[in-house]
Design a binder for these strands. Sequence first.
DNA 1: CGGGATCCATTCTGATACTG
DNA 2: CAGTATCAGAATGGATCCCG
Lengths: 125, 125
Amino acid sequence: MNAEPSPPIGFSCGLDATLRIIAGKWKPLIVYFLAQAPSRYGELRRAVRGVSDKMLIQHLKELEADGIVSRTDHKEVPPRVDYTLTPLGLSLAEALTPLCAWGADNMAEVARVFAERATWNNGSG
Amino acid sequence: MNAEPSPPIGFSCGLDATLRIIAGKWKPLIVYFLAQAPSRYGELRRAVRGVSDKMLIQHLKELEADGIVSRTDHKEVPPRVDYTLTPLGLSLAEALTPLCAWGADNMAEVARVFAERATWNNGSG
DNA sequence: CGGGATCCATTCTGATACTG
DNA sequence: CAGTATCAGAATGGATCCCG
């Protein structure tokens, strides 16, 4: 093999630990959005544009198991479920803020890079 | 489908843009490590524990195409190649700092959560 | 040392259809 | 409205062999 067998819970640094929590395409977005607004399932799904029901539910469950989000089922009909951040989740969302700022600050740059990258992919016509 | 067709380059927020860049299991680690030390290929591979040659090279190329890292081939023998952050990459690394701090601060919590999660998986039935 | 190509298995993600 | 089941496809990663 060409990589050291990594220990199950050993983190190389704090960032490594954080990544275990936010690994998943939509998790950072879910956490960050929840920090800005109280959110029902449907609201969340509209906010995190592009996510499917399957992934949203799956990530929500994992985030809940990880102590980042808290689920409240109001047991009404029609169904109403609220997702909110735990204190731990809130602190994580705050740590995410600089990334949001970075993206906003360099959005033009990022968009340009991805526009170029798109030209490679459909170069076939 | 069950999700709105998301526009190719439309970002819902700055975080969304950032995620396009650091999407990839090892990218944040690569960027963050590069911010701390000048790094040859081999050093990087040892630093980002668990990554395979295949993924490291692949992510490095993408990061280079995205203007985050810069590759310098010294054309020596034995081969020596250095990877460094561009100014853009450096600013990204700085935005990653709070996540590293969060992980360090909550490492015990994260480790505990993952230890519990491990018990589900090998509950042997 | 640094980099590359391939095969194969596992995991993650996504699209569709369905339920209460 | 909220959540679930199932299948298809892409990404990830291990192992292995190759090059300068």
